[in-house]
Amino acid sequence: MTFLWPWMLLGLAVVPLLAGLYALAQRRRPKYAARFTNLDLLANVVEASPNWRRHLPPALYLLAIAAVVFTLARPQLVTKTPRQEGTVVLVTDVSGSMNATDVAPTRMAAAQEAAHTLVDRLPKDFRISLISFSSGVNVLVPPTTEKEQVHAAIDRLAPLGGTAMGDALATAVDVVRAALEQQPAGTNADGTPATPAPIRGEGEAAPAVIVLLSDGAQTVGTYQPLDAAQLAADAGVPVYAIALGTPDGIAVVTDPQGRQRTVRVPPDFETLQAIAEVTGGRAFEAPGASQLESIYRDLGDRIGYVEERTEVSWAAAGLAGVLVLAGGALGLLWFNRFP
């Protein structure tokens, strides 16, 4: 719950103040009762002590005052509503370094498990695409609402080769444009290729996002990562970039001569952070499987749902009225007075 005028909540300080004054008044009651010296006659006049009942109406009035303060603060409930449609392109590193075991059981296995989580959390009408990259780039699943196809492709991912991060990101932008039917519009008057229009206007929510996971620096490819990131920025597609692994991670990789070598494979968070900044997305570090799972779960909520705020001042006002009526009714019933 949030409040449109939260400073009004300072008025709640009056509730304990009034409660203290009421307690002080109750402590003074025995002094007045002692003036009635004929205790035998007093016992005949008062049939029974009201005990806790005499405190209930004032307590209800205090709660009503608190409810009025909440009303003045204009409380709002925040609810998450599934987006009606959208496209998410998962771009996943499957280079040889994904065999590293610094993320248990391996970086690859952790990435697969987290990807399943993200797919499951997205609304059913979202289109999802899966792209893998190592020394080359493969569009394993074009955008589809059939989640089972995506899950099956995720299970088939296997690490091997280098890291063509830039080419993968450029391919993802092409996939987004094709999915949203926003292809380049010919050439300019001077014969140069025309810059395609962004797929969203300024201030609009992105109809598509790219989720890029990588565990190392680029080693091969035509596009440099930041050049590809500019393509995404020009298209209006934010990139959420995740750096998987720890700086001390090591992996057994096969070099171009076919020999196996053990090498350090730290993630390149700086490049991924720059990609996110250029495209208006966000970068994350995932040194472990639990952190990666949490990131993908959060991304599922961030991408697939929109927060809506509904003012509920009427509920607090209604509660205040009910409390006042209840306190008054009990006062009349038990003590023949209101309030």
Rank of each mutant, 00 (worst) to 15 (best):
W52I: 09
F36E: 06
A59L: 03
Y32R: 11
P57G: 00
P50E: 01
L39I: 14
R35M: 11
W52E: 15
D40H: 13
D40M: 11
P50S: 01
P58Q: 00
A34F: 14
E47T: 15
A59C: 03
A43T: 01
V45L: 12
N51V: 02
A34I: 14
T37P: 12
Y32C: 15
N44Y: 13
P58I: 00
A34W: 03
N51E: 04
R54F: 05
L42G: 02
R29W: 14
W52D: 12
Y32D: 11
V45G: 03
Y32H: 14
E47Y: 07
D40P: 13
R54H: 04
A59E: 01
A34E: 13
L41E: 01
P57S: 00
L42M: 05
A33Q: 13
W52M: 08
S49W: 10
L41Y: 07
W52Y: 10
K31A: 08
A48M: 07
P50W: 02
N51R: 10
V45H: 14
L42S: 07
P30T: 09
W52T: 11
A34T: 12
L39G: 09
R53H: 09
S49N: 07
A43R: 01
A34S: 09
T37E: 08
R53T: 14
R35N: 08
D40N: 12
L42Q: 09
K31Q: 13
V45K: 05
P58C: 00
H55G: 09
L41M: 14
R35F: 14
Y32N: 15
R54D: 02
T37S: 06
A33R: 11
T37Y: 09
A43V: 03
F36Y: 13
A48H: 04
A34R: 12
L41F: 07
T37G: 07
L56D: 02
L42F: 05
N38Q: 11
N51F: 10
S49A: 08
A43W: 01
Y32G: 10
N44E: 06
N38Y: 04
P58L: 00
R29G: 04
V45P: 01
T37C: 15
L56S: 03
V45Y: 15
T37Q: 11
E47V: 10
N38R: 06
P50C: 03
L41T: 01
N44C: 06
D40W: 14
P58Y: 00
V46N: 05
E47H: 12
N38M: 08
A34Y: 12
W52F: 13
L56G: 02
P50H: 01
F36I: 08
R35P: 06
R29L: 14
R53Q: 15
A59Q: 05
K31S: 15
R53N: 05
A33C: 06
A48K: 14
N44V: 04
D40V: 09
D40T: 12
T37F: 14
P57K: 00
K31C: 10
N44H: 11
F36P: 02
L41A: 06
W52P: 08
Y32F: 09
L39T: 13
